[in-house]
Simulated scan of single mutants.
Amino acid sequence: MAKKKAEDIKLTLTDEEREGLDNEGIKRVLTNKAVLEAAKKYKFTDEEQEEFDYLVENEKHKFFVAKAIEDKISVNENDVTKLYTDNKPSFDAQNIPFSQAKEIIQRDLLNQQVAILEAEELNKLVEEMGDSVEITKKELLFSKGNPDIIKTIIVGKVIGKKMADEKFEEQEQNKKDLEIIKDSVYINYYLDLEVRKNVKVTQEEITEIYENEKAKLGNVTPNSAYQQIANGLLNNKAIEERNNLINKIAEEYKVDEVAKEYTENEEN
């Protein structure tokens, strides 16, 4: 059966998805749906499918840990005030008002607390596990010997076992969230794949920028400068390519037209 073309697919929003959104909000949600449709029409190679599955499982495990610690997270206002007082000269020097400084401190404290709680939760899971964790040849080949990936796979097996024991993925309240997580990975992985295929930085581009800017580089060595220029170029091109791809997909799926229809229906 032939797959439908983009122009033949009418994007729709549920009442829940549409609630409280203005035209721009509706367009954002519709654009995500359009990219997801495009992603699901793309056929992964075996290697890409393996990487995608790894990313999905990894995000599921992160979600499980996040749910396990969510009731333990709290930021003490006294700690916020003390940190603000201790660092007030620095905030004043940067013209950062109290309200903004407070948000910065709260965010930093929250991130620190989450990192500590996540580590504690993982340690608890490891303590509860059996004597060994098996990693397969296929998984080792996938890791390409990267110790961080191997560690993630091993930790994932520990978390996955706990999730299975608790029937975490079968619980109704988690099903929707896990589906959203998978869709998000699908969207981002597809976009990243397309960007990787299309974005290249040439030696000529790097050299041209280096020659034009070298007088401003001070004590930066040529090798370091070339690396920084290459990374900057690659990042800028990747962002541009990603945005262009999203805009192209949105146009193919007539996102603006559909969003306009929803907005007009709301007004009538």
Rank of each mutant, 00 (worst) to 15 (best):
K41Y: 07
I116Q: 11
Y42T: 04
N78M: 12
I159M: 06
V80E: 00
K82A: 11
D183T: 00
E211C: 02
E77G: 05
N198G: 05
L55Y: 11
A250Q: 04
Y186S: 13
Q112N: 15
E121R: 10
L191N: 04
E240R: 11
A115H: 07
V185P: 03
V75C: 04
F91S: 03
Q228I: 10
T85R: 07
R18F: 15
K40T: 13
Q106F: 04
N95E: 12
D53E: 13
A66G: 09
E48L: 01
P97Y: 01
K200E: 15
A119F: 13
I206E: 01
I104V: 12
K102D: 13
E205Y: 04
N243T: 12
N95P: 03
K216L: 15
E19N: 14
N219R: 11
I135D: 05
K197I: 09
D53P: 01
E118T: 13
K3E: 12
E7M: 09
K197L: 12
N123C: 07
D148V: 11
E194Y: 09
V35K: 02
L125C: 08
T85G: 01
K254V: 10
N76T: 04
E139P: 03
G160L: 03
M129L: 14
I181L: 07
N223D: 15
N212V: 03
R242L: 10
A2G: 00
E204R: 07
D165G: 04
M163W: 06
E70S: 14
E170P: 00
E261T: 14
F64Q: 01
K260V: 05
E118R: 13
N244A: 03
I153R: 02
F52P: 05
M1F: 15
I150Y: 01
Q113N: 15
E70T: 14
K40V: 07
A39F: 06
K43C: 02
A238P: 02
E166H: 02
R242N: 14
N87C: 06
N236Q: 15
N111Y: 07
K157Q: 08
E70A: 09
K72V: 08
K157C: 06
E50N: 07
Y54I: 09
E211T: 13
I149C: 05
